[in-house]
């Protein structure tokens, strides 16, 4: 296993996440796609960190995990509040604003 394998895996994960955000219509699933993209970045950081013999990349992962957790809290709160007023969270039904 070289660093290339890890970077390919991370690129695949990132693409799955991005495609998921673009084609799925449920905000929870879209949100999972975003999490997948963030974790693909984490994997890339750790792989590069190992290749470069530098601990920096691994430290960044901790910071990113903390950010992702804060993002989950805010995102789920917005989704729950939306569900309370609309009884749906499908983004195709959330269209009061003309886009």
């Amino acid at each position: 296993m070289t660093v290339n394998h890890y970077i390919f895996l991370s690129a695949i994960l990132f693409s799955i996440g991005a495609v998921g955000v673009l084609i799925r219509r449920n905000p929870l699933i879209m949100f999972m796609g975003i999490e997948l993209m963030l974790n693909a970045a984490n994997l890339a950081f750790v792989a590069f960190s190992r290749q470069l013999q530098s601990i920096d990349g691994q430290v960044f992962v901790f910071l990113i995990l903390a950010v992702a957790a804060a993002e989950v809290a805010v995102g789920l709160a917005i989704i729950v509040a939306l569900f309370r007023t609309r009884q749906t969270v499908n983004v195709d039904d959330v269209n009061a604003l003309k886009g």
């Binding site: 991005a18 955000v21 905000p27 879209m30 949100f31 975003i34 993209m37 993002e71 805010v74 995102g75 917005i78 989704i79 509040a81 939306l82 007023t85 609309r86 983004v91 959330v94 269209n95 009061a96 604003l97």
Partner: peptide, 13 residues
């Protein structure tokens, strides 16, 4: 709320 959801999803993306 819709503005918040859209801003959040695209911002996080």
């Amino acid at each position: 709320l819709e503005a918040g959801l859209k801003y959040f999803l695209l911002g996080a993306f």
